[in-house]
């Protein structure tokens, strides 16, 4: 069954087109990574899906409902981000206590265990938490809701390395125990590659890729060799990325096709995160070219 169905979704702010044309469908019970550069529109898309903001044009359906101001969507989805806030009059323990009343599938045990594991202070106030602890608490909250659609917007911002690893582990374990649709946005794909099934890559408000992780990994190859040879080989092909290594050697990233094996050219696989980076790059050349 389709959880999310976006058709030509657009969102305009006053002077800015945050989402140009988003069309994709999300099947149920999958972990999807929402990848994009800064300002690609990830947060805007998630907020529309969570029903916090209105679309400007196009169509968006979450559980076959328009999510904006929809109670059914609100009851079955959660967006965890760093702007999540809770009343200052409630301690963290209080928040965990009232949450089951709102979220019918709230997992008290999971929430309490994670809370203890991450050594949060139950008497602390949410607004007084450090950035990392707040992110950790929000993550616990998001996981424990067990919402059919759980969305994380840059969940690991502020978390330290150990907590990040724990978070991904916890997410994966909980997902396996209770499969549901999870959408995680991030701008670094590499660290969460291992738990994603699908990748939704957006760039400048448009969907660039929506494929399984395996497909993305196979998307491109890197040819490395002497400049002449590499240029000859890739002539007429779409070059995703090119870099001059030194005066003689160069590498070029192209779409994976049948590339004839040639003496002097090595073929390397390209990691999914690199693919995403190259596909969404507007510039020819890299930062090095600025300093030439």
């Amino acid at each position: 069954m389709t959880v999310i169905d976006c058709q030509n979704l657009k969102k305009r702010y006053k002077r800015l087109n945050a989402l140009e044309d988003i069309t994709f469908q999300l099947e149920e019970k999958k972990i999807t990574g929402l990848i994009g550069r800064n300002g690609a529109g990830k947060t805007t898309l998630l907020k529309i899906l969570a029903g916090f903001i209105r679309k400007s044009a196009g169509d968006v359906q979450v559980f076959s409902n328009n999510p904006f101001n929809n109670l059914r969507v609100s009851a079955n989805s959660i967006l965890v981000d760093d702007q999540m806030s809770f009343p200052d009059s409630l301690t963290l323990a209080d928040i965990l206590e009232v949450a089951p009343e709102f979220y019918k599938r709230w997992d008290t045990e999971l929430a309490n265990n994670l809370f203890k594991y991450f050594r949060l202070n139950p008497k602390q106030l949410h607004s007084r938490l450090s950035k990392g602890n707040r992110a950790t608490f929000n993550m616990i909250f998001g996981l424990a809701t067990r919402c059919e659609l759980t969305m994380f917007d840059e969940p690991t911002n502020g978390m330290d390395e150990a907590v990040r690893t724990d978070f991904y582990r916890a997410l994966l374990k909980d997902y396996i125990a209770h499969p549901r649709s999870i959408l995680i946005s991030s701008h670094h794909l590499a660290e969460m590659e291992h738990l994603l099934e699908d990748i939704l890559l957006i760039h400048k408000g448009k969907v660039v890729l929506h494929q399984s992780l395996e497909e993305v990994k196979e998307y491109a190859v890197k040819l490395q060799g002497t400049t002449d040879l590499v240029e000859k080989l890739t002539d007429g092909k779409e070059i995703l990325h090119a870099k001059q290594l030194d005066s003689q050697r160069k590498y070029v990233v192209i779409r994976k096709e049948d590339v004839p094996a040639l003496e002097g050219v090595t073929i390397h696989p390209v990691a999914a995160s690199e693919v995403c980076m190259y596909v969404t790059s507007d510039r020819k050349g890299g930062i090095d070219d600025v300093f030439m």
Binding site: F52, N69, N70, L71, S74, Q83, S85, A99, F102, Y103
Partner: peptide
């Protein structure tokens, strides 16, 4: 914002 951290919509 704190209200919308929990299940709600504009009317509720």
């Amino acid at each position: 914002n704190t209200n919308f951290s929990f299940v709600t919509n504009g009317i509720s």
